[in-house]
Design a protein around this nucleic acid. Structure first.
Length: 467
RNA sequence: GCUCCCAUCGUCUAGUGGCCUAGGACACCACCCUCUCAAGGUGGCGGCACGGGUUCAAAUCCCGUUGGGAGUGCCA
C-alpha cells in the first residue's frame, strides 16, 4: 500500500473561497496525518484563465493557513491546462474503444428534441450514427447501462441509476477537453488516491467514476463534504457573501483562529471547548465524523474565536502584531509613535479587541497631537451641569498630585465626592477630554503616560470647547 | 420537472439503541467583578421537524410526510 495522495484542485478565480480553505485544510490534515502528499492542482482547462497572480494568491492563502509550499508533503502547483494533450488522447482512446462517440447536434437541436419528447437533456441521438471526428462535433461518453455506486467516505454508498445520467461531453466542438475528463486524467497522471471536495461535486462523482473505469484505472476514494451556507441557507457565493479568506485576513482575522473555526464547521473536537490547537485537531479529526448537512459560516463566531486567540497571544506577540497593523494603517500617527507607551497600554487593550486593528482607536489618542473628538460622545459627556466645574476641580487636583495612575484615580474620586457624582459617571467627561471617545481602555494609566502638561492642556481645551 | 444529498437549541456541534429529565461552544439575557468598555466568574433562555413502525427500551434503526440544499452547461 503506497502513501496516499490527496489532491486539492481550486479554480483560479482571483480570490480564495473560505469553503475552499476548508477542503484544503481537510486534504492537508489527512495528508499530514496519514503520511501522504498534498497535491495542488490549479484547475482550469482554459489556459488563458490561469493568471499567474491568481495562482500566487492561492499559494499565499494556503501558506497563511499553514499549508506551506516548501513542505516536503506539498506537491505542485500543477496546471490542468498544461495536460490538455493527455486529456484529448485519453478521450480519443475511449472513442476508439467505442466507449465514446461523436455528435454533431447543436444545443438548439438537442433542446428542441428534448422538449418534443418531454425529457431533459441529451437523448443519445448520435449514439449509433457512427460519426467520426469533425469540426464542431463534440465527443460524448457512452454511459453504460446499470447502476453506479459511489463509495463516499463521509456519506456512505450513494447509488445512481445510469439511465438518469445523459451521455455527457468529453471534448468540445473545438476539440478541447472539458473538466470532467481532464480531472480524471489528471488524477490518474498524478496518481491521486483520495478526492476530498465539496458536496456540489457529488453529482459528478458517478460520471467520473465511469470514466476511471472506462479508462481501466483505479477509482480514487471519494469524500464529499457539505457546502458552507449563508444565513439564508444558500451556498456561500462571491456575489452575496463575504467569502474571500484574503478579506478576513486583511480585516485582522488570525490564521490560527480561521483554521480552528473552519475545522469546527461540520465537526467538533472532544471536550468542552472548541478552541484547540492544530495538533489536537490533526489527532482527533476523522472524515467519517464530518457532519452530513451544510454549515452556516457564522462570522460572529469567527470573531469570538479570534478574540480568544488574541487573548492567548504572548504580550510581545500581541505588540508585534499590533505594530504590524499600525505600519499598514494610513491614518496611524507613525511619526509620533512611541513604542514604550504602547507597550505599557498593550495589556489593557489585549482583552478588549476581537480584531487586532481595533487596537488603533484604543490607543491613537496617545500619539495624536489632539484627541480625535467624537462629537456625540462629547455632547453627551458634557450634558450635565457638573461636568465643566468638576473638570476644573480635577485639573486642580491633577496639578497637585504625584501623577501616578493610582493617585490620579484617587484625586478624581475626591472630586466626585465633592460634586456627588460617582466615578463611573465622572470619568465620562474626563475620558472624552483625554481620549476623544466615550469608551476605551482604563483611563488613569494613559493619563499617567501622557504626562501632566499634556493632560492639563487637553482638559483645558475640552473646558473651552464645552463653554 | 428530474437526479442526488440533508434534517439535535437562533447558530456550530456532542450523541453510533439504555449512561439523555439531550452535553458543550457562539449569540442573547441576568447577576457578580468593575473608572467606561471589555475580559473573567456564576446562572438563565433555548433543541431531537412531523407521522407511523421495529424493540423491553429510539435523538439514535426502518418507512413515509414535510421542509431545506446541491446538481441538472460544448463552466469548473
Amino acid at each position: 500500500m503506497s502513501a496516499p495522495r490527496y489532491r486539492f484542485a481550486p479554480s483560479p478565480t482571483g480570490y480564495f473561497h473560505v469553503g475552499g480553505a476548508r477542503t484544503a485544510l481537510y486534504n492537508w490534515l489527512l495528508a499530514v496525518k496519514n503520511g501522504g502528499t498534498f497535491v495542488l492542482r490549479i484547475e482550469d482547462t482554459d489556459e488563458s484563465r490561469n493568471q499567474p497572480q491568481w495562482t500566487q494568491g492561492i499559494i499565499d492563502a494556503l501558506e497563511w493557513l499553514g499549508i506551506h509550499k516548501d513542505d516536503s508533503r506539498f506537491e505542485g502547483p500543477y496546471f490542468q491546462s498544461a495536460n490538455a494533450a493527455e486529456h484529448v488522447a485519453a478521450a480519443m482512446r475511449l472513442f476508439e474503444q467505442g466507449k465514446a462517440y461523436f455528435c454533431d447536434q447543436t444545443t438548439e437541436q438537442i433542446q428542441a428534441r428534448a422538449k418534443e419528447k418531454g425529457i431533459t437533456g441529451y437523448d443519445g441521438h448520435s449514439r449509433d450514427r457512427g460519426l467520426g471526428p469533425g469540426d464542431g462535433r463534440v465527443l460524448r461518453f457512452r454511459v453504460p447501462e446499470g447502476k453506479t455506486v459511489v463509495h463516499d467516505l463521509v456519506r456512505g454508498e450513494v447509488e445512481f441509476d445510469n439511465a438518469t445520467i445523459e451521455d455527457f461531453v468529453l471534448l468540445r466542438g473545438n476539440g478541447t477537453p472539458v473538466f470532467l475528463i481532464a480531472n480524471v486524467v489528471d488524477d490518474v497522471l498524478m496518481r491521486i488516491t483520495n478526492v476530498i471536495r465539496a458536496e456540489e461535486h457529488l453529482p459528478n462523482a458517478p460520471k467520473q467514476q465511469m470514466l476511471f473505469e472506462a479508462l481501466g484505472e483505479q477509482v480514487p476514494s471519494w469524500a464529499h463534504v457539505p457546502v458552507l451556507v449563508n444565513e439564508q441557507r444558500k451556498k456561500l457565493s462571491k456575489r452575496r457573501d463575504k467569502v474571500a479568506v484574503e478579506q478576513y485576513r486583511e480585516e485582522g482575522i488570525l490564521a490560527a483562529a480561521m483554521v480552528n473555526y473552519l475545522m469546527t464547521l461540520g465537526w467538533a473536537p472532544t471536550g468542552d471547548t472548541e478552541i484547540v490547537p492544530w495538533e489536537t485537531i490533526v489527532d482527533q479529526f476523522r472524515l467519517e465524523d464530518v457532519n452530513h448537512s451544510p454549515a452556516f459560516f457564522d462570522v460572529k463566531k469567527l470573531l469570538a474565536f479570534n478574540g480568544e486567540y488574541i487573548r492567548m497571544m504572548a504580550l510581545d506577540d500581541f505588540i508585534a502584531a499590533a505594530e504590524e497593523v499600525f505600519s499598514r494603517s494610513a491614518s496611524w500617527p507613525r511619526e509620533r509613535y512611541e513604542p514604550a507607551l504602547f507597550r505599557a497600554m498593550a495589556p489593557l487593550v489585549q482583552t478588549r479587541v476581537a480584531l487586532i486593528p481595533e487596537t488603533i482607536p484604543m490607543v491613537d489618542f496617545l500619539f495624536l497631537p489632539e484627541p480625535p473628538i467624537d462629537e456625540d460622545a462629547f455632547t453627551k459627556a458634557f450634558a450635565s451641569e457638573w461636568a465643566v466645574p468638576a473638570l476644573r476641580d480635577i485639573a486642580a487636583e491633577f496639578e497637585a498630585c504625584d501623577f501616578s495612575a493610582e493617585s490620579l484615580k484617587a484625586a478624581t474620586e475626591r472630586v466626585g465626592e465633592r460634586h456627588q457624582v460617582k466615578l463611573g459617571k465622572l470619568q465620562a467627561p474626563l475620558r472624552v477630554a483625554i481620549t476623544g471617545r466615550q469608551v476605551g481602555p482604563p483611563l488613569f494609566e494613559p493619563i499617567e503616560l501622557l504626562g501632566r502638561q499634556e493632560v492639563l492642556r487637553r482638559i483645558q481645551s475640552a473646558i473651552t470647547r464645552a463653554s
